[in-house]
Simulated assay, not measured.
Amino acid sequence: MSTIVLDGGLSTHLETLGADLSDELWSARLLLEDPALIRRVHADYFAAGATVATTASYQATIQGFATRGLDVAGAERLIRLSVELAAQARDEAGGGLVAASVGPYGAFLANGAEYTGDYDLDEDALLDWHRPRWEILGSAGADLLACETIPSYPEARALARLIAETPSVKAWVSFSCRDAERLNDGTPIAQAAALFTGNPQVVAVGVNCTAPRHIPGLIARLAGGLPVVVYPNSGESWDAENRRWLGLADPVEYGQAAKEWQEAGASMIGGCCRTTPEHIRQVHAHLS
């Protein structure tokens, strides 16, 4: 099976194009203020060689939009718009897939909890929290749902239950990891991935928003199960005190690493935070 090239960091490219994402809605803010810019970002990634557009719904929730004064109907309209924008760019590019982003509960909290898994909700409460957006995205016309940056075992269990509730939906599930073996909450990735093994609705399991140096070890721990999806960040580190990124991730080196991930067993490869269309262009070139 040929390797599928995913897109890169949506918010990163939005900021490159001049968007201000310095609030709790992050990229979802543009669904309200500048949806045309989101469509342009999707188009740029398709032009760079991606065959999958991941929607701007990572941080788009009914609860989050309520803080901006939107009612449920207004929030639902914007969540559906995220799929429409990606589909428009896909159609203009002449083909591809749309993956509707299902971000973790921690993204809504906007306190960094997606990088720790330190939540104030248990599994049942997480199920209830995710369900409204899940139902909207599941009926919005996307090809599949991308459950991404999942940092904790209870949240993975909640998503496994949601997938089972909606047999018409296909999904991939990708975890955020602290090292080459464990989710951010300390759960072995093999244990979390096992929740989805054997479910024909799940097209892949893997890793995103994780340092590239951890990816080979994580792929090895996922080998032999479902197809593996990986889209790490650039490997740069965030200086929270001074609010800046440290280090420099070279797109060519990222593309070379993507070839190694492919050889290790990944069948879906792209980028997350701090990756750009140039990173995806290099991924496409090296995998081709």
Rank of each mutant, 00 (worst) to 15 (best):
L31F: 03
L127H: 09
L126K: 05
L32D: 05
A100Q: 11
F46M: 13
L109H: 09
Q88K: 08
R77Q: 12
H42P: 06
Q59G: 12
Y119E: 11
D128E: 15
R90V: 04
T55S: 07
A53L: 06
E114S: 12
Y105C: 04
D120R: 09
T116I: 10
V52C: 07
V72A: 12
Q88M: 03
D118W: 09
A107N: 06
A93P: 01
A56I: 04
A86K: 07
L121W: 11
T116A: 15
R77A: 15
A48M: 02
G96E: 14
P35W: 00
F46S: 11
V52A: 07
L78M: 11
L85M: 03
L109F: 12
I62D: 00
A48N: 01
A75Y: 05
D128N: 10
D124C: 11
A47W: 05
I62Q: 02
R77M: 06
A110I: 02
L31I: 06
V41F: 09
P104I: 01
V41Q: 13
D91A: 13
A47K: 09
A93V: 07
T61I: 08
F65L: 08
G106K: 12
Y58M: 00
L31T: 02
A66T: 08
S82F: 01
D34K: 09
A48C: 02
P104N: 11
D122A: 09
D118L: 14
A36I: 04
V98G: 10
L31D: 00
A66W: 12
T54N: 10
A93K: 07
L126R: 03
D120G: 12
L127I: 05
L31A: 04
D120S: 07
L85G: 04
V72P: 01
G95P: 08
D71A: 12
A75K: 05
A53E: 03
S101D: 01
